[in-house]
Amino acid sequence: MDTINALSVQLAPHNPRGLLLHNPVIAASGTFGYGDEMSGVCDIQRLGAIICKGTTLAPREGNKQPRIAETPSGMLNAIGLQNMGVEALIATKSKIWAGWRVPVIVNIAGESLEEYAELARTLEGVPGISGLEINISCPNVASGCMEFGANPDSAARVTSAVKNATSLPVIVKLTPNACDIVAVAKAVAGAGSDAISLINTLKGMAIDTKKRKPILGNKTGGLSGPAIKPIALYMVYQVSSAVDVPVIGGGGIMTSQDALEFILAGATAVEVGTATLVNPAAATDIVEGLESYVAANNVKFAELIGAAQR
């Protein structure tokens, strides 16, 4: 069997347009820019999909420096959604994406329901865009984002607002900084989300003992990297057994073994984020690792999804 086809996954089975990936490995938003920056250091066309930097209606400057801090087995970031804004994205990036084999998904972030809906309307019909990922999970902005993702009702309202404004497949990215992530997942699935991705970063901080103040300019940031993997894995395990839409798992995935754990926990696909910052070829290495695993074990990829739940 062709291992390329053997790894293909459908992330929007209930959407007429569908979201078919050649393989389940996705470059996560915020760690892969707009994709083109990475073309020199890894074979981006080998990826299942690329999710671009979180995009807002107007350009954003982001937070003041310092924006990152290294932590045990991971890092904190408080970039604050610095991005070029949706108009510049359409003008400068979508044409590039339209020529790619790899599908690109745009991560959208807003401060109000109307902003999310407006972003979805603006991106409707733009060539080169295969789906939307709703960001209701960024912990580093003063308003919007995680405010919506922290409770089921507001998460569902954002999902509905976007779904009503687009024909594109919609993924909702959840925050672990919610009291009950399973309840949020059920609410967004009920509101029509085609797929669910989790987790975004965990809110945290680091303090400079010499200056006696927080290291990050924003004081708090989002924790990512291997440090959060067991938490993310458990949340993926819980959520994927509670909803009937595809789940995209992520949080500290560095290797194909890590990715496999998320798939066995119930994820149909995985997002690779912080690993890319350390090793630009991390995601493509994971594609190869999964291909080898499937071939060596003579197993259908679909049989692996959620196998640890059974």
Binding site: T31, E37, M38, K53, P66, R67, I79, T276
Partner: peptide
């Protein structure tokens, strides 16, 4: 010199004005 994560222009950790 600033703190950097990726070095490749994708993470926006090193933005300055």
């Amino acid at each position: 010199e600033t703190r950097m994560a990726c070095g490749l222009g994708v993470c926006y950790a090193c933005s300055i004005k």
